[in-house]
Nucleic acid binder design. Structure first.
Ligand SMILES: [Mn+2]
Ligand SMILES: [Mn+2]
Ligand SMILES: [Zn+2]
Ligand SMILES: [Zn+2]
Lengths: 152, 152
DNA sequence: TTCTACCTTGTAATGATTGTAATATTAGAA
DNA sequence: TTCTAATATTACAATCATTACAAGGTAGAA
């Protein structure tokens, strides 16, 4: 992914953010993990391999910087920590209460698609649609215990 | 609100929760603060007047109990703490980034109204619609700063 | 090179929430 | 009523994500 790195660098410059090594690697990681919706800790742990001197504070500072510049989107569906999303197009999220997976959801709805920028007189800057329940895969496995004498 | 207290007691019994004094007062407080969306701390501080021995742990335990029994709804729009909502009908929330107020939002949309219990094969148990921006009142006051012409 | 602005880092502090163990209250049996 | 087991409340410690702070590092302008 060498060409990709150039795109990442351009993205940072466009937002007026100095493309330091740490910032490049963090944004690259997010761009390669679109459906993980990683936590700060996940970003930190993974990048420690490439950057052994990396500080957790830097990851926090950098991600907050990205959030302010709207380079990434913060997903707070779990309620306990921020998950980061490189995909800033309007889309929503589903959290499986069983396996913890966060899945992208695309809805056909004027509000969901962010077409309304004013609601009841309030100026809307961000829309978060959070759905919680049991995912498709976990639903199928109801009652299926590890061993099991499965299917016909 | 003496008659109201009987309704509160009935609500608890219906959910199989023993109507202890603490629980009654906590649920009563929430029912009287439908548009505050109070924090644990707010509930605790306010009730300390009536119950000087009240423990913060009890407030946490009780509210978690109410959440499990779906007697109240947890709103995590701020990302830093849970706000409690006695109103469990499907409705959504707006957070003003300037004044911090949380305002109820009613949308006309199949998803927003919770009519779809399955989306993309996932079973939906909870829907949270969070809108963030600048509220009507704060929008009007743009530029109307007391004295100074401060920066950001 | 030297200066200056900005980055990165390590560590301490904060704040919301949970865990734990002791004490108190309650409902039901005797 | 009295006793007893189950449940509730309390005080306090621990956890975890996040922020604050202070010190050292880096790159480019002059
Ligand atoms: Mn996403
Ligand atoms: Mn509400
Ligand atoms: Zn699942
Ligand atoms: Zn406002």
């Amino acid at each position: 992914m060498i060409t990709n790195m150039e795109k990442i660098k351009t993205l940072l410059k466009e937002k007026g953010i100095k493309p330091t090594f740490q910032r490049l690697k963090i944004l690259e990681y997010l761009s390669n993990n679109l459906n993980n919706h990683p936590t700060v800790e996940m970003v930190y742990e993974k990048l420690l391999n490439d950057i052994p001197t990396l500080s957790l504070t830097t990851v926090y500072n950098t991600l907050n910087n990205f959030l302010e510049k709207r380079l990434v989107f913060g997903v707070t569906i779990t309620g306990t920590e921020v998950r980061y999303d490189f995909n800033t197009d309007y889309h929503h999220h589903f959290l499986c209460k069983k396996c913890g997976q966060i899945i992208d959801i695309d809805l056909k709805c004027a509000y969901a698609e962010g077409e309304k920028s004013i609601i009841s007189g309030h100026r809307i800057d961000e829309i978060h649609g959070y759905f919680k329940g049991i995912c498709k895969a976990c639903s199928k496995n109801v009652g299926k215990k590890p061993k099991s004498r499965s299917s016909s």
